[in-house]
Amino acid sequence: MANSIEAEKRAGWALVSPPFLYTLLALAVPFIVIVGLSFAGLEGGRARVPLAPGDAEKLYFTFENFARVLSEPIYRVVLLRSLIIAVCVTLATVLMAYPIAYFVSFYVAPSKKALWIFLITIPFWTSYIIRLALWRTILGYNGIFDNFVGIFGIEPMNLLSNGALAITITLSHAFAPFAVLPIFVALEKVDRSLLEAGQDLGETRWTTFLRVTLPLSMPGVMAAVLIVFIPVVGDYVTAKLMGGSTTPMIANLVEVEMLKKRDHAMGSAVAVTAMATVAVISILFVLLNRRFIGSKK
């Protein structure tokens, strides 16, 4: 019989190859094309697919697309807006989520924890387009929010007209469950006897929380931050529906470049810049926190 380790390797690869090849073709190949396009220039025009006949030799390698993304105000403003909105949404969701995760982990009976988590995650699985429709009717002029504040004699506010605010509110609602789960998981891993030890050593409940529970749950908080921040920066549909044409986010800009202007090189450069920015911020965040958490231990 053949070496069983070899046989295992072959079986594993054979089994994983359909999903792997699929992801390679449907994700990696298009991604490489995008990255390639973002460095593409075309003499006397803009690089796009499919290339016009005879254009192939006019292609050249360039950084000018990226130079434009970084120098022209429109790209900078929109990228900055995306980041600011993402930071606000992340702060809001994580701050709102922590007490909930803490409550479910520490104060809910073990048999009911799964039910609570299920309840918190359900809204996430309902049609986002429908939820957007709802937020438009809630925040719009003389909508439900205006009805509500009207009770207190406040004039209609028409929050929908403030694109960035409407986007932030809607996304904070949409990503709430995302933030609860990782914090909950981290809190579940906290050894309960450590808390008793803390109190045994003369800490109050509050100081035990600050000195034991909170630091131990920081990995969950970090995961929550990333899990909210990353997709929010790339949000397309919320900005489109809640922000209208006045407050686009970076993903909307990608669409404009790609489909409206048919400038595939520029669209790719915007997309790559956005992803690179998010990746750099995420990595910096993880590194900074690693140092912070490392020094605590």
Partner: peptide, 13 residues
């Protein structure tokens, strides 16, 4: 990955 990136890159291809 943002869905817009997935959608756009696949569309380009």
């Amino acid at each position: 990955l943002p869905e817009i990136i997935i959608a756009m890159s696949m569309l380009i291809v």
